[in-house]
Nucleic acid binder design. Structure first.
Lengths: 221, 221
DNA sequence: AGGCAGTATGTCGCTAAGTGACATTGATCT
DNA sequence: AGATCAATGTCACTTAGCGACATACTGCCT
């Protein structure tokens, strides 16, 4: 296969992540096409041309094969939030970042096809309890990130109870919004609702602002 | 065994729930004592004196055996919220309900031992991803209930996006508070923090109020 | 009381999800 | 080129969980 990097021992973290994502793509496709229960570990292995044993070396269960692709669906927002400068308002920051991405000025965060796959998995999670786990785990990850970001913004430790509650609310509304967008897109409904990027930014910002009682959103003096 | 009720066909829902809870108790005990991985379905079956096959008839996985006892931990709050009259503020309602329970005037909602077991499971969920699922599922249930309650209060359908976001935030802060209380209790730390029932009520109320941007909490005019 | 109907449980056997142990490849360093 | 070490393959094994059939229990009817 491709290049390993010797120094540091073992497969590079990046390469490992890429492989997991590759497996995840195929797994997600199979899950969507034929259902989770009807998809076996052997099938996933065959689809990515690896031995079944290797699949279990990279994933602890077949459902967790969907995790990387689901996680891809939230890394964009997470990255954007991590770059939020203290002196900007949430609305402004989201708007500039989103337009930058939309116009292709910023680096392309994730492939559109991957985004679609992620939406499909989240959709499947509605009926497949096994997949729901993966989705909730991803949201859990978002929440932990939020703790760091919000804690930093509020000059408090990320373990602070208030910070954790704000982070939990913020992550929760983001999740609901994502689910809403996902189901709308997959249903093929009125996509116009999301075409205006600044409006979308305002929507996310307003949701987070409300969910944190106004504690998160303003620029820091 | 006890009485079935014929009309409606099958075991009564109540009886089934009681049985599931009984299994859940033993499973939780085993999980806590020896870890999830080290506990087999056979052991659970033996502990409740049932065949292993019967366990799988009532639970789709061994981890889900913990669900009923975890759910017990949140039904109290859920019941309280469901009884929230429109003309009361959240603070007042929670305070009166909690003191009523504390004083024994109201019906005892769940056994204290069960509450402890629930806390232990939530604690375990921190390190055991399989159990985390059960806990997140329970929270998911809370969120759905919240949708109904909040939707009703705001005179909007439970499926309304705004309602769902409020419900998600509210459920999220309740979860964080529950986790906080659970870890504190299990650590044997400063329990005095929770002795004042009205203060506790105010705390929950304030958290929910903040998480919903003040939309939920006031009496309805 | 006694037979009938229906449901819960037990028993058996199987599929497939994961794991451990050991062999094999294949790249990198000297 | 040969040594080294991580990644993968191969094979045997454990066990969660389910389908199918047999059995026991419980209520209903006459």
């Amino acid at each position: 296969m491709a290049t390993k990097q010797r120094s540091g021992g073992g497969m590079s973290e990046q390469r490992r992540a890429r492989l997991r994502l590759e497996i995840s793509r195929e797994a997600a496709r199979l899950f969507w096409d034929q259902g989770v229960a009807a998809t076996s570990g052997d099938q996933i292995a065959e689809a990515v041309d690896l031995s079944t044993r290797t699949i279990w070396r990279h994933f602890r269960s077949k459902e967790s094969c969907a995790e990387p692709i689901i996680m891809q669906g939230v890394v964009t927002l997470l990255g954007v939030l991590r770059r939020w400068p203290r002196q900007s308002s949430l609305e402004d920051h989201l708007a500039t970042e989103l337009t930058g991405i939309r116009l292709g000025h910023e680096k392309p965060p994730v492939d559109l096809a991957d985004e679609m796959l992620a939406m499909k998995m989240i959709r499947l999670a509605d009926t497949e309890p096994a997949l729901r786990t993966a989705w909730l785990m991803a949201c859990d990850q978002v929440e932990r990130e939020m703790c760091a970001i919000i804690g930093d913004r509020l000059d408090r430790p990320a373990s602070d109870l208030q910070v954790r509650m704000h982070a939990a609310s913020a992550a929760a509304v983001v999740r609901v919004l994502d689910e809403h967008i996902g189901t709308t897109v997959l249903a093929g409904d009125d996509l116009t609702e999301f075409h205006d990027v600044t409006a979308l930014a305002r929507r996310y910002a307003h949701a987070i602002r409300t969910a944190t009682g106004g504690a998160v959103g303003d620029p820091i003096a």
